[in-house]
Each structure stands twice: as C-alpha cells, then as structure tokens.
C-alpha cells in the first residue's frame, strides 16, 4: 500500500518514493532543496489545528503544510 509522509510517526525515518502529486511550484522548491525520490525524510514536529509540519530532510529543516505533506509518498 502507498504510504504518505503523514502515515509515518514523527521521528521515524523514511525515504521519499514519489512527489509527482505535489503541486508544481512546491515540487520545484522541494527539488531545489534536494528533497526528491530517494531522499531521507522524517517529521520533526506537528503544529496544532492542522498547521504545518517541521520536516527534516537531507540534514536540513523545513516547514511545509500538512495537506501537502500528505502528497509526498514515502517508503519506510
């Protein structure tokens, strides 16, 4: 079954398997940061009220929205 970033518990490491469903502009940004297929990724924090996630990928921390994180597919 396909897993999105939201399906893995915070702190657990996973690998990006597909980012094609992410919106075009955000995908460009993710690729700029080297967050693409094969990159290691984990959730650091979740902000309240459905707010953004702090994500660690490639040794850097970024903030992205929760529903968009749901479009990043990962493999554990």
């Amino acid at each position: 079954m396909k897993k999105s970033l939201l399906d893995i518990p915070p702190g657990m490491k996973a690998y990006v398997s597909d980012i094609t469903s992410v919106s075009a502009v955000l995908r460009r940004r993710l690729i700029d940061l080297g967050i693409m297929e094969g990159a290691e990724i984990s959730i650091k924090r979740k902000l309240p009220f459905g707010g953004p996630l702090a994500v660690e990928a490639n040794g850097q921390w970024i903030g992205i929205r929760r529903w968009e994180a749901g479009k990043i597919e990962v493999e554990v």
């Binding site: 502009v25 993710l30 953004p52 850097q60 921390w61 903030g63 992205i64």
Partner: peptide, 11 residues
Amino acid sequence: ESSIFLVELPP
C-alpha cells in the same frame, strides 16, 4: 490560485 508554503528552518 493554489497557495504554497515552504519555509526553511535554520538552526
């Protein structure tokens, strides 16, 4: 238009 949000969190 669809909105995007990505912010780098520096140490």
